[in-house]
Design a protein around this nucleic acid. Structure first.
Lengths: 332, 332
DNA sequence: CTGAAAGCGCTAACAA
DNA sequence: TTGTTAGCGCTTTCAG
């Protein structure tokens, strides 16, 4: 790790000024072909790599985008990261990823840190922050796209159509003539469960069916949770003919519960999940579920950012709602 | 996005020099308590955030680590990222992630770009690069940890014990008295299949069993590939009693093939996977597999880097082999 | 088509 | 305990 070659070394060896080297490489002003050739030759010879740090200090741009998510190891977020990566990579932007464990302090800390690092834009997936936090910390210093189930209005937003997805899932069951449909949600006020629950409710109502609170049970977002929730549902005197689950892990738990109770899926109990995680297609019976467009979320976030960065958009905050899509398989 | 507050603004408002502000904030030289208080007050009041870019230019450190992987959307790498993140986060380092699609040009391009950006260290997971590439592009400019199945000796390395894992998986079957054991590998020379195949061979040999080439079939690393490979295996006159698969997706395909052929798992056919992806525990029967310590790989990479960055280690390249572990479930 | 010189915002000798 | 000053390596006016 020795002293690096700088533009000065190149200029000296090529017998031109640093200005010319800079322009020969960037093409931002015309330089004689001979000079360009000479410069490039020296660059190659010396193995010169321009310092992006120095450039960033001068241009006030880092060409980096920060992605702040609750947990990079949760498969949903890598898909988001990939979408973002693909959207901004063409513009020469790179992604810095921060994993917050969903904790508010960590989210705010990373936000501050990334602002310090002069990233050109931030994409924040958050369960915890609100408008006040954001206006205090970010304060318009950098374009920000946020995806959260909380109330946030001061920034560009992107979200998947959770309610619409649950609506379609429920509708799919109703269309098969099933009317006793339960919903297994996550903990109240946590995650997307509430929005998905709302879609389920609306679907029932629109179909002229009564939706009753006893048909809604809560679980955490795990297979074990879903299994015990559905197991108890199945012991009821009038157990449901179908369950819509707030996510796929719960639904996979439901499958397990049914198997243990000797209940046939989908004949005796139809099961619908949400998210379309990898395992959904691999379990037996393959899970009918709602595709949650993580990649698309990331991609749209990137577009939103790029619009402000290079697209010249400078208007009020915009919201993008990415549609979800029912994936019919064997379980319903 | 207006002009940012700089250290000069703070110094002026606090009535001290920029040097004092710098030291009051960094604590790198003693400053009177009164001054420190005053400075911090002004910092708060003005909402000053030091520019990490300027600092990096001055100190020649960015406190960023680059992680270059084939595909961030493949669940294995997020786990690596998480491990790396956890290892280096305490040191104040952040992670930039680059996704290469496993292409050599992209890998080299990202390497160059990250060196340009003066990252303090690089972790590279690669299928494609070799020593020559690395010495040409990196040339000791930055600490590098590489994880690859190719021959690379000039840098710190980390790898999981692929051969050992396959050895243990095969042994697990032999211990149950099974002797007709096939192996479903990936495409030759691609990915970890060859190493795992070697472990399988050695296990057979050590147990005094003959390993024959006809027991090795090739597939790609997908469930569909595994399914057709194992389906054809099952039509053979002397079909095997067990299959060791080069990864979990292949193994899940094997489960499907068995179900379709009316072959009972594990009684008629025992199936072992490799990697322990999320779906492995969720399929039926739950998959016996070899845990591939992705998180640990990332974590150890981080430690290796930190050793060179701040731990004062400056010796020859080191190699870390992270042990794998058999996870016995229902399928074998 | 080319160069000289200023300065991005910070830290660290060196000096007091 | 504090300040002055010189850069880190680049881009970009301004001037020729």
């Amino acid at each position: 790790v020795r002293r690096a070659i700088t533009i000065i070394d190149v200029a000296a060896r090529a017998g031109v000024s640093t200005t010319t080297v800079s322009h020969a490489l960037s093409g931002r002003r015309s330089v004689s072909p001979a000079t360009v050739a000479k410069v490039k030759e020296v660059v190659e010879e010396l193995g010169y790599r321009p310092s992006a740090v120095a450039r960033s200090l001068r241009t006030q741009q880092t060409e980096m985008i920060a992605l702040i998510v609750p947990d990079i190891a949760n498969p949903f977020y890598p898909a988001v990261a990939r979408g973002l990566h693909d959207a901004i990579g063409g513009g020469g932007y790179y992604t810095v990823i921060c994993s917050t464990d969903g904790e508010r302090v960590a989210e705010l800390g990373f936000l501050e840190e990334m602002i310090s690092r002069s990233v050109d834009g931030i994409v924040l997936f958050s369960f915890a922050v609100d408008d006040t936090d954001l206006s205090r910390v970010v304060a318009g210093r950098v374009p920000l796209v946020v995806s959260t189930h909380a109330q946030v209005t001061g920034n560009d937003r992107v979200n998947s159509d959770d309610a619409g997805g649950a609506y379609a899932a429920t509708r799919h069951l109703i269309d098969q003539g099933i009317t006793e449909i339960a919903f297994v949600s996550g903990p109240e006020g946590q995650g997307p469960g509430d929005l998905r629950l709302a879609g389920y409710h609306r679907s029932l109502t629109d179909a002229g069916l009564i939706s009753s609170d006893v048909d809604v049970v809560r679980s955490d977002y795990t297979a074990a949770g879903g299994r015990s929730a559905v197991a108890s549902l199945l012991t009821r005197p009038r157990s449901p003919r179908a369950v819509v689950c707030a996510n796929d892990l719960i639904a996979i738990g439901a499958l397990e519960a049914a198997r243990e109770a000797g209940v046939e899926v989908p004949t005796d109990l139809a099961v619908v999940g949400f998210d379309d995680i990898e395992a959904a297609a691999l379990v037996v019976p393959a899970l009918t579920t709602v595709f949650n467009p993580a990649y698309e979320l990331g991609h749209r976030s990137g577009r939103l950012l790029l619009d402000r960065l290079t697209g010249g958009y400078d208007g009020p905050p915009r919201e993008v709602v990415v549609p979800t899509r029912l994936i019919p398989r064997r379980s319903a």
